[in-house]
């Protein structure tokens, strides 16, 4: 083989390695978007609330975990538990304080406006908690697993996103389809009125849905902040925007669709930045969203009719 051919082969190998690397990067960030989309979509599908504060709840999961790691030396898994509990607690408290009083009046637009109010309050609290800075977890919090080859690198945070993402889809899908509480959640999502006639407790459904959804947001915030070295309020805002796009692409009514939508958005935006331009990263994402709204508004996996649990 001549030196010219060898050089060409090497160049092709490098291009292939870069492609694989960027697909893996896209899968990692897509897992974050997908998990967030599942949690965001679950609340909308069950209660009819487009909760724009949901991204900031994810940030609070990261903030709480960072606090226990820095101050009490928590390791990765206990801090993950704290992130889940914090997300769930904030979700439930905001639901009781901000959304529950609206349910008697059942004004859907009111939910959106209220969630904007909650969002603003949580942003202010989050900025104060972080002292207006971007923070990161100590590097020794998570040093495994790390994929390092000559040409491919995946940080531990990225790998955990790619592990916990699919696990959370399967777990949530099983909870929704194989457990009594899941059946109640789906029943309310299908028809709130008929669910109540059948004896389903809306309070149990609401608290369970919010707890599961906000707890999952806490997981996403925690893992994303490790993977992207970014504990900050804008982290949650980014998740919200991309998670919303993922929900539209995948479909509101099915957690599998929401997760798949996240993966599609993640891989598309990373490859778009690599092979088109970083300038068009968001254009590609939201262009995809607009295309789905125009030509397949029900998303990849379709949708169910939405009910507002009261």
């Amino acid at each position: 083989m001549g030196p010219l051919l060898t050089s060409q082969k090497k160049r092709n190998e490098n291009l292939l390695n870069l492609f694989i690397q960027q697909v893996l990067n896209g899968l990692a960030v897509g897992s974050a978007y997908g998990m967030f989309a599942m949690s965001f979509g679950l609340i909308f599908a069950t209660m009819g609330i487009l909760n724009v504060a949901h991204g900031t709840i994810a940030t609070f999961g990261a903030i709480a975990a960072l606090t226990v790691v820095e101050n009490w030396g928590f390791s990765f898994f206990p801090a993950l538990l704290i992130a889940i509990l914090t997300g769930a607690a904030i979700g439930i408290v905001t639901d009781r304080l901000a959304f529950q009083p609206l349910r008697a009046r059942a004004n859907t637009l009111g939910y959106l406006i209220t969630s904007i109010g909650v969002w603003i309050v949580l942003i202010a609290l989050g900025e104060t908690a972080l002292d207006h800075q971007i923070k990161t977890f100590p590097p020794d919090l998570l040093s495994w697993p790390r994929l390092v080859t000559t040409n491919i690198y995946l940080a531990p945070g990225q790998i955990w996103l790619m592990i916990i993402g699919p696990i959370s889809v399967v777990a949530l899908y099983l909870v929704l389809t194989r457990t009594p509480i899941g059946t109640m959640i789906r029943a309310v999502g299908f028809s709130d009125v008929w669910s109540r006639i059948s004896g389903v407790s809306s309070t149990v459904v609401i608290l369970s849905t919010v707890g599961i959804s906000a707890g999952l947001a806490g997981i996403v915030g925690y893992l994303s902040s490790i993977a992207f070295d970014n504990v900050s309020v804008p982290l949650g805002e980014g998740l919200l925007l991309k998670g919303f796009a993922a929900v539209v692409v995948g479909g509101f009514g099915d957690v599998r669709g929401a997760f798949l939508g996240g993966i599609i958005i993640g891989v598309t935006e990373v490859l778009g930045a690599q092979y088109v331009s970083g300038d068009f990263r968001d254009v590609i994402t939201f262009g995809l969203l607009i295309l789905f709204l125009l030509f397949r508004p029900e998303g990849i996996f379709g949708e169910i009719k939405f009910g507002a649990a009261r």
Partner: peptide
Amino acid sequence: KTQAADTDLSGAASQIIA
């Protein structure tokens, strides 16, 4: 190119290293 709101810079870092 990156954007101010980009939370994930792993793609840009991979691009640079390549």
